[in-house]
């Protein structure tokens, strides 16, 4: 049975399937690195999906659509930023409320857009490269967002590791009091991180409504935002592992559907649980190591900051 599945195609499919969760997860990773836990990813994604869709339909330009998705979701994330950073509200509760609000608002904006077909986004023309056997199908036959998603991981990785911006961001996430004492504007940095997270989730959502489906229907993101949250944890806040995690989560779904199509009988529900259980296992292995440092979780994650002096 397994012999009937072409691995090149399987890999190519899972790369496409993982794009929305990669984008949302890498955005959330930056947010969490700054010490903020925003559980509203699903709400931001679906806002991105509708804002991107509306923009693309209105302008006829899919690229502007992605921009619109990023802006719309970033605007929504600003609500979260304002509440948690200025009004010092609890991040867990605010994030959950953000998802509720985003789902409602997106559906309101989307009324009248059912059955509309958005302008199409083509694959990036890489000419003869796409014709290379196996590799061509895996690497050189995708739309630009697929490349963008991988590039964004590389960029986040490089920025966090090598730049001053990354250093400051991590400092804020580790100890806001220390960062504040060093003269960094904790609140401002966190707000910017939250907006970045929103924008990336928005692009991820727009990918669903503009390329994956492509159409607007209520609830179109169907829980992808929650998976993105799980992947950040799986990745233990390391950018490249986000890619691995997203391919694992996306891959299991794609694989089980492919196995079915190839005629294999598989227990779909139990297989679908596997990535979550693996993530828990990874968490346990990491945290049972040498204390907090090996866990790599930002120490100030989920705590609000108020400069008392």
């Amino acid at each position: 049975m397994l012999g009937d599945i072409n691995p090149a195609v399987l890999i190519a499919s899972l790369m496409v399937a993982s794009v929305p969760i990669i984008l949302a997860a890498i955005g959330e990773l930056v947010v969490e690195k700054a010490g903020v836990l925003n559980l509203g990813v699903e709400g931001m994604m679906i806002m991105g999906a509708i804002c991107g869709f509306v923009t693309a339909v209105a302008t006829g330009n899919p690229y502007l659509g992605f921009l619109g998705g990023a802006v719309g979701a970033a605007a929504l994330s600003l609500v979260f930023g304002f509440l948690t950073q200025f009004m010092l509200s609890n991040q867990v509760a605010t994030g959950l409320a953000l998802t509720l609000f985003g789902q409602g608002l997106s559906s309101l904006i989307g009324q009248g857009y059912n059955g509309v077909k958005p302008p199409l986004t083509g694959t990036v023309p890489l000419g003869p490269l796409a014709d290379i056997p196996v590799l061509g199908r895996i690497l050189f036959d995708h739309d630009w967002v697929v490349y963008f998603s991988v590039a964004s991981i590389a960029a986040v990785w490089a920025v966090l590791k090598y730049t001053r911006v990354g250093l400051i961001l991590r400092a804020v996430g580790e100890s806001h009091d220390a960062a504040h004492a060093l003269g960094y504007k904790v609140i401002r940095i966190r707000i910017l991180a939250i907006m970045f997270g929103g924008a990336m989730a928005g692009i991820g959502g727009a990918y669903v409504s503009l390329i994956r489906v492509p159409q607007w229907t209520d609830g179109i993101t169907a829980g992808a935002g929650w998976i993105a949250l799980a992947i950040v944890v799986f990745a233990s806040w390391k950018p490249w592992r986000v890619l691995l995690g997203a391919y694992l989560f996306g891959g299991i779904t794609v694989l089980q559907l492919n196995l079915q199509a190839a005629g294999a009988a598989i227990p779909a529900h139990y297989l679908s649980m596997a990535p979550y259980l693996i993530t828990i296992l990874v968490l346990v292995v990491m945290s049972s190591g040498k204390g907090r440092a090996s866990l790599n979780a930002p120490a100030a994650l989920g705590q609000n900051f108020h400069a008392s002096r």
């Binding site: 499919s13 399937a17 994956r212 609830g219 169907a222 559907l257 492919n258 079915q260 199509a261 779909a268």
Partner: peptide
């Protein structure tokens, strides 16, 4: 060939199911 998606509505999963079938 039958593929069970275990959902009435999940665009991403349905797209993957279609792709898996086309692949066969």
């Amino acid at each position: 060939s039958v593929v069970w998606a275990y959902t009435w509505f999940d665009p991403a999963k349905e797209a993957d199911a279609a792709k898996a079938l086309i692949e066969q």
